[in-house]
């Protein structure tokens, strides 16, 4: 993968997502799950579990992890790695908070499909 320049796009407000919850962003490359932790950190992962493609946005968010709703794999929100005995990695997109606004790296949404 080559590095690209980032271009930040605003996708919504922090308060649009419930604490310990997630919302979906529809993109040309598929659904992106944007998470809000109990400490108001935000994370973004493609909405596909490394196991069998379960929608991570529908899981339970706890600490900096989400538990996939289909077979309970636990995925770390910071780097997408699967926790515990299972192996795999979900891919993410850069995201940051500015005031209460959520910005994601728009450049990552274009280009090759994930």
């Amino acid at each position: 993968m080559t590095k690209h320049d980032m271009s930040w796009v605003e996708i919504g407000q922090l308060t649009d997502i419930p604490k310990q919850g997630s919302r979906v962003v529809r993109t040309p490359r598929g659904d992106l799950a944007v998470f809000r932790s109990i400490d108001d950190e935000v994370f973004a992962l493609w909405d596909r579990c490394p196991h069998k493609g379960g929608p991570l946005s529908q899981g339970i968010v706890h600490g900096r992890n989400v538990t996939c709703p289909l077979h309970n794999w636990v995925i770390n929100l910071e780097d997408g790695t699967v926790q515990g005995p299972d192996e795999g990695c979900a891919r993410g997109v850069a995201v940051r908070l500015e005031g209460g606004r959520i910005l994601i790296d728009g450049a990552a949404l274009a280009g090759n499909a994930a």
Partner: peptide
């Protein structure tokens, strides 16, 4: 309502 609607839709935008 937030459960059932996407936060943002790039497809619609495009």
């Amino acid at each position: 309502a937030h459960e059932f609607a996407p936060l943002y839709d790039f497809a619609k935008l495009e």
